[in-house]
Amino acid sequence: MNSHLLEWLIMSLFIFCVGIYGLLTRKSGVGLLISLELMINAGALNFISIHRFLYPAQVDAQVFVLFVIAIAAAEVLLALALFMLLIKKQQPVDITQLNHLKH
């Protein structure tokens, strides 16, 4: 295997783990979003590095990455809209307090 690919993959894994760590430890909703974004981008980086080193002739991975970016943007939009509403109602965006669905 190409040694450069391995480096890129390790890099992507590292970013992914950082994302998981943030997801599990952050109390702020915005922090959570940022961690999520990291994880998504780790996945995208994975796609694009495998495309670059193993299958440079095919464009599937590029299409996938574009989709991922678009969907992540829509997702962030939705979440940020919710957070904006909460802030408008003078409530902290603290996900440990947001447990209304439990009841």
């Binding site: 997801l23 599990l24 996900i95 447990n99 209304h100 669905l101 439990k102 009841h103």
Partner: peptide, 14 residues
């Protein structure tokens, strides 16, 4: 099991 804490669910998921 159902705590209402998103991060608990994430742990379960992972």
């Amino acid at each position: 099991i159902q705590t209402g804490q998103v991060q608990n669910y994430i742990i379960w998921f992972i």
